[in-house]
């Protein structure tokens, strides 16, 4: 079966004061029907940019798709008309964002904000859309949806607002849901509830999910496959359990070792928290013909600094962009 989403040789350029920088450099990925994948990496690695490019929402006048293609259900999105993209956005591909506190419009009721997307894409009238909005609030487990539908965002907690965002995103039963760090701004108990909700809804609707996160726990919980990104490039890709048990890229190993371990017994001697030394390079460093992770890598050799490593496949499902991948 053909993949639902296919990204090939994608290059996204950002216009910065210092010149044009490739914020996404030669990215390839596929998403199957009903599959859930995660984009993992530090801030500034291009995860959100990839998502915005798929949505056709790159910042106007600043970011653009320079080359490559994004195919959704066989349809090319990079050359699609604005009108066609509007039909797809919120309808077949939808997105929820990091900041539930500011992502809803403060001057409209949540009911209106859900109903409006139904009117835009499903051709529903005022009444039908409103009734559907109540059902959606119920589906995202907001108590007493009949009265809450008339609430304004400021009358809701962060977790409830994120539920409303999920209701908006899933209103038209999209084929793909992009969740850009959906729980980063929420406290831990609420995070777990949101993940539960997303998992349940996915089971009900069969929606494919792209999760963007730097939380390894969330990846393990939510996705079958993960793509580790570093400095606008794919570092490693593969099934979550395989990648976590046997990383094929030093950056992945670094990220995994950063997850603190919960110990059964508090008297046990504690491990120090580990970190990946250094920081992600600035945009101006992107696009060079070398391994951009090399300055932070314990295994870096001369070869790493002379040429960009290709994606080396391991079996049918995995790949790693590291010159030393075979040895790992």
């Amino acid at each position: 079966m053909a993949p639902l989403l296919k990204v090939e040789n994608l290059r996204i350029e950002l216009a910065t004061r210092a010149g044009v920088a490739p914020v996404i450099d030669n990215l390839n990925l596929e998403l199957a029907h009903g599959e859930s994948i995660s984009f993992v990496g530090e801030s500034g690695c291009g995860k959100s940019m990839t998502a915005l490019a798929i949505m056709g929402l790159l910042p106007e006048g600043i970011g653009r798709v320079a080359s490559g293609s994004i195919q959704f259900d066989g349809e090319e999105l990079t050359t699609a008309s604005p009108r066609r993209l509007r039909q797809i956005r919120g309808n077949e591909i939808s997105m929820i964002f990091q900041e539930p506190m500011t992502s809803l419009n403060p001057v409209y009721t949540v009911g209106e904000q859900i109903a409006e997307v139904l009117r835009a894409h499903q051709g529903l009238g005022q009444k039908a859309a409103w009734a559907q909005a109540i059902e959606l609030l119920d589906a995202v487990q907001i108590p007493n949806p009949k009265s809450r539908v008339e609430a304004y965002p400021f009358q809701m907690s962060g977790g409830q607002r994120q539920r409303v965002m999920i209701a908006i995103a899933l209103a038209c039963t999209p084929k793909i849901l992009i969740a850009d760090e959906p729980t980063t701004a929420l406290d831990v108990t609420v995070q777990a509830q949101i993940f539960d909700l997303l998992r349940d809804l996915r089971a009900q609707t069969g929606t494919s999910i792209i999760m963007i996160t730097h939380d390894m726990g969330a990846v393990a919980e939510m996705s079958e496959r993960m793509i580790v990104m570093y400095a606008g490039r794919k570092a490693e890709e593969g099934p979550v359990d395989q990648v976590i048990t046997h990383a094929r890229h030093p950056y992945t190993s670094g990220l995994i070792s950063c997850v603190p371990h919960i110990m059964a017994n508090l008297t046990e001697e504690r491990h120090d928290l580990t970190e990946v030394p250094g920081i992600v390079p600035g945009l101006s460093e992107f696009g060079q013909d070398l391994c951009l992770f090399a300055p932070r890598c314990p295994r870096a050799s001369d070869k790493c600094l002379s040429a960009r490593p290709p994606d080396v496949p391991f079996g049918s499902a995995r790949s790693s962009a590291c010159w030393h991948a075979e040895d790992l």
Partner: peptide, 17 residues
């Protein structure tokens, strides 16, 4: 430039809306 305008765009609303 606000987040809720980005949400509105992500909903596939028209430029005018």
């Amino acid at each position: 430039g606000s987040d809720y305008v980005r949400t509105a765009k992500a909903k596939g609303l028209t430029e005018r809306e």
